[in-house]
């Protein structure tokens, strides 16, 4: 087993934890955390492949993609937080009601 494989396997586990968490958890904040964990898994897989393909330096393309991806993910998470806090402020709800 090589180093990158440890991390690429981890990335798959994190991705599944995240995607499960989005559907299973109820609290808004936990759902947002779950999407970020999903993202963490995805980024980890990119970077692990970059390490595998290293020559004198690691493959810079996945690194750049991950930096872009992290920033994009954080922007959407910030928006999600704003929505969650607004909803809480207006209704006191911390999760989606199930009656729909």
């Amino acid at each position: 087993m090589e180093t990158y494989q440890i991390y690429s396997l981890t990335s798959a586990v994190l991705f599944v934890i995240g995607i499960g968490g989005v559907f299973i958890t109820r609290h808004f904040i936990k759902k947002i955390i779950a999407t970020m964990i999903m993202g963490g898994g995805v980024f980890l897989s990119f970077v692990s492949f970059a390490e595998r393909d290293a020559l004198t330096f690691a493959d810079p393309v996945p690194h750049a993609l991950v930096i872009t991806g992290i920033v994009v993910a954080v922007a959407s998470a910030a928006f999600a937080l704003a929505l969650a806090r607004r909803i809480y402020q207006q209704t006191g709800d911390i999760s989606f009601s199930n009656d729909k």
């Binding site: 494989q5 586990v13 599944v16 970059a50 020559l55 330096f57």
Partner: peptide
């Protein structure tokens, strides 16, 4: 889903990446 995800990353072919091109 976890099992097939693990299989997918375990069996991933060597793509080679773009290290050389970027270099």
């Amino acid at each position: 889903f976890l099992l097939i995800a693990l299989e997918a990353v375990w069996k991933i072919p060597e793509g080679g990446g773009l290290t050389a091109a970027a270099g």
